[in-house]
């Protein structure tokens, strides 16, 4: 009995010192390993229209970061900047810096393909390919050159399991993904994103097209996923942000107004504009 207690005490001490270490690192702010993204003075223009103004933000690792704000506030633009998808719009210009795991993503020698592999994305409307469930999930690994059937089988199973949909679909892997319900399609899309073993998952309003039950399933999934992945989620559903995220960023007219622990932001926001928005009195 005493021995067990002693062990437990030692374990507690170890946990405490590790916690302390983490906290110390956090106060250093830019310490590598704690943040997947470090955004510094980011400005973005569509032609002559400025969409983002001087954004400074550090996205924590293995946490859920929610981005909220009214339509047109720049939250989706910001999300798409993180995996450089925004550059698909030809008139886009940026200034400032974004570091992914310490690497400057706008640097000339930085490989965009690497970023896309590491930073997966899930969109508002489920967008499976018109292929079987299996081929949807195996798509990314195949593009990356994996041909071995057994390896692909393993990846598909693992990804669908991680997306909490394996049990529902294990006997329907050869069915067309279009035949699935919206909620199932969205989780297949999440499985497809997981199949290439990303580090970060960007989600752009992933549940806005889903019914409440499917929404709840995706929300639970997000809680599971954050054990392995860092998640950034844009959502219009404030209660969702409050429920599932660790930190919340409030964007308004292209500016980052407030970025805080979610609990604090929803109980006691520091900026009047945040208060007005989250209480629905925005004008």
């Amino acid at each position: 009995m005493n021995e067990t207690m002693e062990k437990q005490q030692k374990a507690n001490v170890a946990i405490e010192s590790k916690g302390k270490e983490n906290r110390e690192n956090k106060t250093n702010g830019a310490a590598e390993g704690n943040h997947v993204f470090e955004v510094e003075d980011l400005n973005l223009w569509y032609g002559s229209d400025q969409a983002l103004y001087e954004i400074n933000m550090q996205v924590p690792e293995r946490q859920v970061t929610a981005i909220i704000g009214p339509s047109g506030c720049g939250k989706s633009t910001f999300l798409k900047t993180l995996n450089r998808m925004v550059e698909m719009v030809p008139i886009v210009k940026t200034s400032g810096d974004i570091k992914y795991r310490g690497d400057h993503i706008f640097a000339n020698n930085f490989k965009q393909e690497y970023l896309r592999a590491k930073v997966g994305m899930v969109f508002q409307k489920p967008n499976p390919f018109p292929k079987s469930v299996y081929d949807n999930v195996a798509y990314g690994p195949r593009v990356h050159g994996i041909k071995d059937k057994k390896t692909l089988d393993q990846i598909v199973e693992k990804s669908l399991k991680d997306a909490a949909i394996w049990d529902e679909l294990k006997d329907r892997l050869n069915e067309n993904a279009y035949g699935l319900s919206g909620g199932q399609q969205q989780r297949v899309c999440i499985a497809r994103a997981l199949a290439v073993e990303p580090d970060v998952i960007l989600m752009d309003e992933p549940t806005s097209a889903l019914d409440p039950i499917s929404t709840a399933k995706v929300e639970e999934l997000v809680q599971e996923l954050k054990k392995k992945y860092s998640i950034i989620i844009v959502t219009h559903n404030m209660q969702q942000a409050a429920r599932i995220s660790d930190k919340t960023a409030f964007f308004l007219n292209g500016e980052l107004i407030e970025f805080a622990e979610t609990d604090n932001l929803f109980q006691n926001p520091q900026d009047k504009r945040t208060e007005d928005y989250i209480t629905g009195r925005f004008g």
């Binding site: 929803f266 926001p269 208060e275």
Partner: peptide, 9 residues
């Protein structure tokens, strides 16, 4: 109303 912030308080 699912209030937050000062409304909730």
């Amino acid at each position: 109303q699912q209030p937050v912030a000062s409304d909730l308080r």
